[in-house]
Design a protein around this nucleic acid. Sequence first.
DNA 1: TTATCCATAATGTGATATCATTCATATCGA
DNA 2: TCGATATGAATGATATCACATTATGGATAA
Lengths: 230, 230
Amino acid sequence: MMYDIPELEMTADVTSQEHAYQRLRHAILVGAIPTGVTLTMRGLADKLDIGLTPIREALRRLSSEAAIQMQDNRRMLVPTMTAGRFDDLIATRIALETHAAKRALPYVSNILIDDLRAIDAQMDAALTADDYDALTVLNQAFHSQLYCANPNQTSMSLVESVWLQLGPFQREVITALETFYVVDRHKEILTALKTRDETALAAAIQHDIEDGVGSAGKDAIASRSKAKMA
Amino acid sequence: MMYDIPELEMTADVTSQEHAYQRLRHAILVGAIPTGVTLTMRGLADKLDIGLTPIREALRRLSSEAAIQMQDNRRMLVPTMTAGRFDDLIATRIALETHAAKRALPYVSNILIDDLRAIDAQMDAALTADDYDALTVLNQAFHSQLYCANPNQTSMSLVESVWLQLGPFQREVITALETFYVVDRHKEILTALKTRDETALAAAIQHDIEDGVGSAGKDAIASRSKAKMA
DNA sequence: TTATCCATAATGTGATATCATTCATATCGA
DNA sequence: TCGATATGAATGATATCACATTATGGATAA
């Protein structure tokens, strides 16, 4: 199966391994790598124009984040999605991110709220420009900046692992009509932040996840299994 | 600083990389690697009697699980613990594991409960034998088996990342007097499982974490900062 | 037509060598 | 005595090579 890995501008001083990792990670995050197809090290090395060694280490890192799966046959692939796994990933996202948001709330400043609002505005722009990959990245930046307000935060890397596992769904999901809900829910999050209302914040995060990837993903899985039956 | 990495028997057919990963992982999990000391690839390769390449990939995997930290100076180390980070790790453990337990509950069978009870008995034996590393491993097996009852479970790898980050505290913590509480709380967990009581289960998990690593860890941090002042 | 088997190609694993960067230590200067 | 500096040692990064394992495609047989 053909696919391509989006470019990703980086500072020149990063190692090849880091470069490969960031680029593959981004590709998975926006759903650019189809699920189920076998990835080969030489193939990726060729595609990214990088040696085998950095690719290997990047893949090992991604496998430890459950972004890719290394089977015992020595085959590597982006795991395929099932309804059950998807459901559990969404539930885990909600548990983890409501927790992270609540822990971050005491550290939220008005400046941060303004920054989040700015990201939200960028999302509106990306939406009208039909730049869905940017939309995904911005949405994650929105959540990430919030959770990282907590200076002792230890759950961001866990959240990112879940995002990576949901990544393969991004493209089929984000084009769905439900997309605009995300922006709406961000407004709800911003309001809860402004009033420093912990309960409302947790609810808003949950709604954001459910209405965004959650519902659209369910639809995508449903239509996929219907297609298989036909 | 001197330290040694516990042996770990494995099947012969695993790759060197997997072997190195498992052994280093176990060492961090039981707190055998002191925090703050720089790890060198050649040093570890020498210690484990394995080539550089497998060590390198094992370290990359561990860094992606936040078990070790790779600084920009190219220095690698097991992160040192601070009171704030510890607090957040415990809070994350509770959020994540109560969630995992609740999701697993519908799949809990009486056979599983018996298995857990058997692990608990082994823990009693390990406790009287003063085998603290085994105690740690068994405790994690207890929790792991419970959460993995959910066939669609996606949070186990996240939980393990948190365990790895708390690992460096295991040895200083588990020798503390509070240790016996853990076993008590496991009884509470088992009771909640038997009655299929979701609320009681979540509470029991929370108590187990708080009374186990939680309180003992707080003490350890407190006495450590006291020692530094003296 | 379909299943089995074999030979070749492709792939992951691991070791080693080289290079650039970083660290450690001793020397020098104030 | 203390701090800055330079030099050599140690370390991580990467490419490359060799090898064992796995996959692939075609030929053969039922």
